Simulated assay, not measured.
Amino acid sequence: MAMIPETMHDILDVTRQLHRELGQHLSQSADDNASERSQMLLNYLAEHEERLARTLETFQKKSDLGSLDTWFYEYTDRHRVIHLDPAETPFANMDTSEIEQEMGQFHDQLIDLYTHLHERAENETAKEVLAQLLELETTKAKLLSFESGRSQEF
């Protein structure tokens, strides 16, 4: 992503777009993966990422507009929002355990970002929004890990 997010609104835009792009890449990779089990997992993950992108979009529309204007430029001008580019991850050539590991790292980066910003937020409204985002991402990551693990049973 070329854009450097400066406000909470920008961060939500970037993370929503990352989830959407990841979902598209996972879906495309499923078509190219030779393993039926990996294809099923990739398709499931693609749907999950698209739902998460829609959830963030709804969250953004319903959030307190003032908190979305909170500036975080001091952090984002020196740190990339995400270090792994989902489009460069070769999911089509991975087995299920490698896919799960990559997805875990991706979501861990977002959890780290939200945690870091929450700890440094200067107003309560921004802290509340970040706490909600952190809870959303953490819950979804745990669910994803659990569901992915269950897919190994079949």
Rank of each mutant, 00 (worst) to 15 (best):
H19E: 15
L136G: 08
N93I: 01
K61A: 13
D64E: 12
M8V: 06
P86C: 00
L45M: 13
F59I: 07
E49T: 13
E74S: 10
F154C: 08
S67C: 12
Q132A: 12
H116I: 00
N93R: 07
T76C: 14
D108Q: 11
R78F: 05
A141I: 00
S151W: 06
H25R: 05
Q39Y: 07
G104C: 03
H118P: 02
L130E: 03
Q152S: 11
L133W: 03
L130A: 08
A131Q: 06
E49M: 15
F72Y: 14
T139E: 07
H79L: 06
S38F: 08
S29C: 09
Q39N: 09
L56A: 08
L84V: 12
I11E: 01
F154L: 11
E6L: 12
H83C: 03
E21I: 01
Y75R: 07
E147L: 13
S63G: 09
H19Q: 13
Q105R: 14
F106D: 04
Q28S: 09
K61L: 06
Q132P: 03
L68G: 05
F154Q: 14
E102R: 10
E98K: 05
T70W: 04
I82P: 02
S97C: 10
I11P: 03
T55F: 08
A141M: 00
E74I: 06
K62E: 15
E102S: 13
I111S: 10
R37L: 03
S97Y: 05
D108E: 14
N43K: 12
L18Y: 00
A121G: 02
Q60M: 12
L45S: 06
E102I: 03
T76D: 01
K127C: 10
H118M: 07
H9Y: 03
W71T: 15
D31V: 09
E47G: 13
H83K: 09
D13P: 00
H118L: 07
Y44I: 07
Q24R: 04
K127E: 12
M1I: 10
F59N: 08
Q101S: 05
T7K: 12
L130I: 02
E135A: 07
T76F: 10
T125S: 15
E74K: 08
P90F: 01
R16W: 02
S27M: 14
M8R: 00
E49Q: 13
V81G: 10
Q60N: 05
N93T: 09
D10V: 10
L41I: 06
A46H: 01
H9R: 10
A121Y: 00
S27K: 13
D77F: 01
